[in-house]
Design a protein around this nucleic acid. Structure first.
Length: 614
RNA sequence: GGUUCCGUAGCUCAGCUGGAUAGAGCAGCUCACUUCUAAUGAGCAGGUCACAGGUUCGAACCCUGUCGGGAUCACCA
């Protein structure tokens, strides 16, 4: 229970005692008192005026008197208009600080007996991870951590899109141009190697298409199918898919390969497994660098058939209907959407088919009360439809599904486009920020007398903190601009800034000894910033709850920054080891220790590690 | 065009279920290291919260409309 919640209960009871007024709990609003006023917490009494038929200042005055008289922890109040500012006793703050010091899991919520599955990352196996995946992974990971801290049992899952035409393109290009190379032979990370062949396919296809456009057949098609006044460039751009499916030699081969794959052709499967295994090795390395892992991997190649059974069940029970051409559809018009295809006329599965099957099997595997899908907002409509379909299918978990929909990541130069080669590669980005951290640290010389291994570990922590914080601090649902220059910044509102507050505290704690419990320290006159820090820390639990509930880690990121900022200011203004008295020193050491603890646990929930020095 | 998300300082972002004079960082200009880590702190400057109405004691926040931007509306994922 947080201080504010506790206070709410007291106000509720007081209103009843004083005026026999049973207020709606939600109507009680309590904030931290703004710094320009005297007091710690502020009760807003405007909402009570109507029921009590008294002017706001009068209510505040009476309530204030009553509270101060009744509550030992409250020692003073003042009223400004409809705001009742309450001041707490020093003993209260010291005891609150001790509560933090003695509970390593301060702010974490007890288990609530519910299980939630969080799906994130969900890569395709035909190319390496990029900046967009990083936002996804960081959001998924930190949301999972926050949910766990909020009392849930959490399963972290990814669905690997390991089959389909895309991977066949890479496979074909490898057969045609690969000369039997491997990650070892080429010295290229597995996922990057496969990505190269994917690109190779695309460029070859483009050449083939361009040549075809010059042929008699190409011209003929253009003349016959162009729209009124349509230029060649525009027409051929639009026609690309049709060309791939009907005329392209490479397209034909890729599709043949997909067919062979579906027929479980031995040679094709062997190649597919071999190439995918390279990709997984590559992904694994990137995940490790990012400090994330999964409890359960699902593979599209294993689950895509499961959906089909559910579709035929749904067809039998009238949830779906079949068109004349054999394709199967869901009618969602009763919930304000349109018709959605769930199975192609040739009986092969679409994205939706697979997702229906995956949701089902996950529930069978884990019995989750909830499932969270971390997927970009370009798929908002798809998930809305999926959730509706699962409801119609009467799936038991269907009402507890959430799409953590996040905005695209733009570059200062505009959108990331793989076709234009403006995609920021995840591994490159990680290497860059670590290098930047190394340069910054070297110029400071603070780490000169520790081993190279220890240094490297610290550079990694600092660099990744910069990168991760830069992305996580932004509200997930917002589209964000990723400026590579700013992402390696280590000053101001950044990960390293927060780490620095922690490191400063560790440095002090290394030089101190014999810490005494804060509540036993005979320290009388707490500074307002000292109280401010404790007040801030008291919110930690509420921030965890809020961030978990809203699936919004940026909440926690901003909180950690606020706390670090306040500590930096405190650090500058007051001496700790050479404080004016032994009592002040003891108190401030405990205060610093608590701040370090909250910063560390808070940042860990975001997947950001703290170095002991920097 | 339908649906949906967004619009806050030059730039990147906070701003709680509506609460006191809208906050940070970056960039710019000052200042503070013989001192517990200056990856820091203090200060200056910077705003028609896209616009117009409405709801109310009170609106950046809620409602309606307008303008601007993104996404989506595939037998793609």
């Amino acid at each position: 229970m947080t201080a504010i919640e506790e206070l709410k209960g007291i106000v509720y009871k007081s209103l009843k005692d004083l005026w026999e007024y049973e207020v709606d709990q939600d109507a009680i609003l309590i904030n931290e008192t703004r710094s320009e006023f005297e007091g710690d917490y502020t009760v807003v009494v405007f909402p009570f005026t109507k029921a009590l038929r008294l002017p706001p200042p009068k209510i505040a005055e009476m309530l204030g008197e009553y509270l101060v008289e009744k509550e030992n922890n409250l020692i003073a109040f003042n009223v400004i208009k409809g705001f009742l500012n309450l001041t707490f006793s020093n003993d209260y703050w010291k005891s609150s600080l001790s509560d933090i010091n003695t509970d390593k899991k301060y702010g974490f919520h007890p288990a609530n007996g519910k299980k939630v599955l969080v799906e994130f990352s969900s890569p395709n196996t035909n190319k390496p991870l990029h900046l967009g995946h990083i936002r996804n992974i960081l959001l998924g990971w930190s949301s999972a951590q926050l949910l766990e801290a909020a009392g849930y049992e959490v399963v972290k899952a990814q669905i690997v899109n390991d089959r389909g035409i895309a991977i066949c393109k890479s496979m074909l290009a490898y057969q045609l141009f690969g000369n039997g190379t491997t990650p070892e032979k080429s010295g290229t990370k597995g996922d990057h190697l496969i990505g190269e062949f994917y690109v190779k396919f695309e460029t070859s296809f483009k050449e083939e298409y361009a040549a075809w456009q010059e042929t008699a057949e190409g011209k003929e098609i253009y003349e016959a199918n162009k729209k009124e006044g349509e230029e060649e460039v525009h027409f051929y751009g639009r026609y690309k898919n049709t060309y791939f499916n009907t005329y392209s030699n490479l397209g034909l081969q890729a599709k043949a390969m997909l067919l062979k794959w579906e027929e479980a052709d031995e040679e094709t499967i062997a190649l597919w497994q071999r190439m995918n295994s390279w990709v997984y090795e590559g992904f694994e390395q990137t995940y490790k660098e990012l400090g994330v892992h999964f409890d359960h991997n699902y593979y599209e190649s294993n689950t895509y058939k499961l959906g089909k059974e559910l579709i035929s069940d749904g067809l039998a029970s009238g949830v779906f209907y079949k068109k004349d051409d054999g394709s199967i559809w869901a009618d969602l018009e009763d919930v304000g959407m349109d018709q959605k295809i769930v199975l192609r006329s040739d009986g092969t599965s679409v994205y939706m088919t697979q997702d229906i099957g995956t949701a089902h099997i996950r529930y069978e595997d884990h019995g989750c009360d909830r499932m969270v899908y971390v997927v970009g907002n370009e798929q908002d409509y798809h998930f809305e439809a999926l959730f509706e379909i699962l409801k119609k299918l009467d799936e038991p978990y269907a009402h507890e599904l959430f799409h953590l929909s996040y905005g695209m990541v733009d570059l200062p130069t505009g959108k990331m486009k793989s076709r234009e080669g403006t995609v920021v590669d995840a591994d490159d980005l990680i290497a860059d920020v670590i290098e930047e951290a190394r340069l910054g640290s070297k110029s400071r010389g603070e780490l000169d007398n520790i081993t190279k291994e220890e240094q490297d570990e610290i550079f990694r922590k600092i660099g990744l903190a910069a990168l991760k914080y830069f992305i996580i601090k932004v509200n997930p649902k917002k589209r964000m601009t990723f400026d590579p220059k700013e992402s390696v910044d280590m000053q101001g509102q950044t990960g390293p800034y927060i780490q620095n507050a922690y490191v400063r505290i560790q440095s002090i704690l290394r030089k101190s000894e014999n810490l005494v419990e804060a509540r036993d320290v005979d320290y009388k006159e707490l500074e307002s910033i000292e109280i401010g820090l404790i007040r801030k820390m008291e919110q930690f639990s509420a921030i965890i709850e809020d961030a978990a509930e809203k699936l919004d880690p940026s909440n926690m990121a901003n909180y950690c920054y606020d706390l670090a900022k306040m500590y930096h200011r405190f650090y500058h203004e007051f001496k700790i080891l050479s404080a004016e008295s032994e009592e002040a020193k003891q108190f401030r050491l405990k205060l610093s220790e608590a701040v370090a603890q909250i910063l560390k646990t808070g940042m860990e929930l975001l997947g950001i590690e703290m170095p002991e020095r920097m």
